[in-house]
Amino acid sequence: MRSLTFNLLKFFIGLIFPGVHQIKTKEFAQWLLDSAPQPLILDARNQAEYEVSHLKAAIHIDPIAPDLAALSKVAKDTPIVVYCSIGYRSAKLVQQLDEAGFSGVFNLSGGIFQWANEGKPIFKHDQHPTHFVHPYNPMWGKLLRASYHAQEHQS
């Protein structure tokens, strides 16, 4: 059921943001292993979500009011991968980055939920591996395996 729901959500995100380039978790994981230039990784979740866990080397950016001026020193052709919980907030930010003139910007399809569900590494404070992810809310958290749910006292 989780897989079907994820596939439907990815389909709808693609309809809402048709110009946004998606990258699958498998492709992104391989990219991170390659010696090719590493992408700038942006976490488009709220601060509380980011503090529970994030992808290694990810930089937090506010999904509601992103400070694109903070990226003014980033070359417009720098590869960028943006993620959130499932891909909606990050797709919106990818669209904004595209409109700001950045090229090579990708939305991580399925977000950190799919990344974690596949057993890929997540971190707290970059150097500390963890197995917990902020579930965003009770409804969307159903897309995250229960064993990965961070409890209130852990965040």
Rank of each mutant, 00 (worst) to 15 (best):
K124M: 03
A116Y: 02
S109R: 04
G87S: 13
L108F: 12
K56R: 15
I80L: 02
D34Y: 05
V74G: 10
H54E: 07
E51N: 15
I122F: 03
S90I: 01
T130S: 14
H60K: 09
P66E: 04
I112Y: 06
D67G: 10
Y88S: 06
P63D: 07
P63C: 10
F123E: 06
F102P: 03
T78A: 05
Y88L: 13
A69T: 14
L42Y: 09
G110R: 05
D77L: 08
R89A: 02
D77Y: 09
H54W: 03
S103A: 09
A65V: 05
G104N: 10
S53D: 12
G111S: 08
Y83W: 00
A91P: 05
A100W: 04
A57M: 07
R45G: 02
P37M: 03
L40Y: 11
Q114L: 15
L68F: 14
S90F: 00
A57W: 06
A116I: 01
L68V: 14
N107Q: 10
G101V: 02
L93S: 05
Q95C: 11
C84D: 13
G111V: 02
S35K: 13
I61N: 03
D126M: 01
N107P: 01
D34K: 06
E51D: 11
I80Y: 00
V94C: 14
Y50A: 04
W115Y: 04
S85C: 13
P37Q: 12
D43I: 09
K56T: 10
K76D: 03
E49G: 06
L71I: 08
N46E: 09
D77E: 12
F28H: 01
D34H: 02
G110I: 04
I64Y: 04
L93H: 10
V52E: 12
L68R: 11
F28Q: 01
G111L: 08
C84M: 11
G104S: 11
A100C: 09
S109W: 05
A57P: 00
E118D: 12
S72T: 12
E49F: 06
A36T: 15
G119D: 11
K56I: 05
K120P: 07
I112M: 07
K124L: 00
E51V: 00
N117T: 03
G119K: 07
P66T: 04
D34V: 01
A44K: 14
E118L: 08
P79N: 05
V74T: 11
N46D: 13
L32G: 12
L32C: 13
F28Y: 06
D126V: 06
H125R: 08
A44L: 07
Q38N: 15
L33Y: 02
V74C: 07
L97C: 05
A69V: 09
P63Q: 05
K120G: 02
V81L: 07
P66D: 11
Q30G: 04
Q127S: 14
F28D: 01
Q95V: 01
Y83N: 11
I86L: 02
L108Q: 06
N46S: 13
